[in-house]
Computed example of a mutant assay.
Amino acid sequence: MTSPLTKLDVARRQLATAIRLFFDCTDPISVYSLAANAWEVIDVLCTRAGVASASTQTRGHLTVGKDLKRDYINSPFRNFFKHADRDPDGLLEGFESSAVDALLFLAVEDYIQIRGRSPVEFQIFQLWFLACHPEKIASDRADGVLNAADRVFPSIATLPRERQIDLGHRALEHARIDAGVLNDPRTEPAY
């Protein structure tokens, strides 16, 4: 018999799987769907716990009348992927694999905020995303994060996307067997 699972357990497993699929260059629709499912659960848990999450901060920067879940997470991609009742013959245009990057990042950041630790998949994705998008780093954290990012992913922001993802894949594979990372108290198992 399997152990009981909490909502956070399920979200962690979905998000870790999404990140592995992402770095394996597997179907971005599946990655997006898993990431959106995980994000939604983590977001609700952060809100209920009063955690100042990245999603909460993001909501503060949205255009008046826009909703993070409705207008950015669900629409148009997630709704198209999971519903056929309103448009059974619909066609989706404009979906790029890069659409999942920010969603994965939000879910990872929120998970780390509520849990205080995370699987190696989350740690590598977080560092990869910030290395690829240094403009997203808060100025009070920039020096430390950029130094860490440059050690693992030197000059990654200037590389083509395929090479960026390949470097992320390699870093994840290395981290998954690195005893120092695995034994760090900030690391927890994904599954």
Rank of each mutant, 00 (worst) to 15 (best):
G50S: 09
N37M: 14
R141H: 07
V145M: 03
R163Y: 12
R186K: 11
C25W: 10
D140T: 02
L8E: 09
Y191D: 15
S33M: 15
L5D: 05
A54P: 01
L182W: 00
A131W: 02
S3A: 12
E109I: 00
K66W: 03
T63E: 15
I124A: 10
F77W: 13
A49R: 07
L92H: 04
L91Y: 11
E93R: 12
P88N: 04
D110Y: 01
A102L: 11
Q14G: 08
T2V: 14
K69T: 14
D140S: 05
S98A: 10
Y191L: 15
K7I: 09
D71N: 04
D27R: 09
A148D: 07
T187D: 02
V100N: 13
R12N: 04
A131N: 04
E93P: 06
V181L: 05
Q14P: 09
S3V: 11
R86V: 11
A54T: 05
L92M: 09
S155F: 08
F122E: 01
D87Q: 15
L159Q: 07
G168K: 10
S98E: 12
H169E: 14
F122I: 05
F77K: 09
R20H: 08
A149P: 00
D140A: 03
L104F: 05
E162W: 06
L182E: 00
H174P: 04
G50K: 04
A35K: 04
